[in-house]
């Protein structure tokens, strides 16, 4: 078999990308659990561990650039490698969302406010499940599966709206909690954006498998996001 060096190095990059993905999944789940238990110590650990996620993303990017420079990959090989550049960036950003939630836990300190934690936990659970299966579709190059995952975003959007209504009502009834309640909205926003990043990831899997660069329709409306 020729090109064993290239095969081996691509395989290694894919493994590292999956590892980055599982680190990010864990970070999101840990961050929401820390919010639930108001665990400041764990939140600080999540913030520290984000540096490891960032470093791994750069290590993957560097490995891809070296491979492109030295091995001249084309066609399927090149599609995988350029997709990995995009996917590792998306994963790193999801890691930032986890860090953002951890920061919110610290900022909230132990202030007593009503947190719709059931909805937030469910958002994290669905988002991580989407991410997990999106990474599975990526590694098996299953375009069909990848193109179906983004539709699950609907449930997350609905939960986000519920959190939004709950927090706005809480702010109206007790204006002294506006700052803290706003932080909760940001936590929900981060979880909502996580699912959008998963959609981008799925688009790259479709690209690897088919060579087509296309947007997969999810219910997310970028215009609304920009105006909100």
């Amino acid at each position: 078999m020729v090109r064993e060096t290239l095969n081996r190095q691509i395989h290694h990059i894919l493994e590292e990308t999956l590892l980055l993905g599982s680190m990010v999944e864990q970070a999101i789940l840990n961050a929401v659990e820390a919010l639930k238990t108001r665990d400041i110590k764990t939140s600080k650990e999540i913030i520290d561990e984000d540096q490891i996620i960032n470093d791994k993303r750069f290590a993957i990017e560097n490995a891809v650039l070296i491979l492109i420079s030295t091995q001249q990959p084309v066609a399927h090989d090149l599609r995988i490698l350029t997709a990995v550049l995009e996917i590792s960036t998306e994963l790193e950003r999801i890691g930032d969302y986890a860090k953002g939630i951890a920061r919110i836990v610290i900022k909230l300190d132990n202030e007593s406010i009503p947190i719709p934690i059931r909805e937030l936990s469910r958002m994290a659970e669905v988002g991580v499940s989407m991410l997990h299966r999106a990474l599975g579709a990526f590694i098996t190059e299953n375009a069909r599966q990848a193109s179906q995952i983004p539709a699950e975003d609907d449930e997350i959007d609905e939960l986000y709206n519920q959190v939004y209504r709950t927090m706005v009502n809480a702010m109206i009834s007790d204006p002294t909690i506006i700052d803290s309640a706003n932080l909760i909205l940001w936590a929900a926003h981060n979880l909502e954006r996580t699912a959008d990043r998963v959609t981008n990831l799925c688009e790259r899997t479709v690209f690897i498998a088919t060579g087509e660069l296309m947007e997969i329709d999810s219910s997310y409306d970028e215009d609304m996001d920009a105006s909100s």
Partner: peptide, 16 residues
């Protein structure tokens, strides 16, 4: 070189 139709072409241009 980006997305050949045939697997034989893919195998050849990727050096396999």
């Amino acid at each position: 070189f980006v997305k050949p139709e045939k697997k034989l072409t893919e195998d050849y241009i990727t050096g396999r």
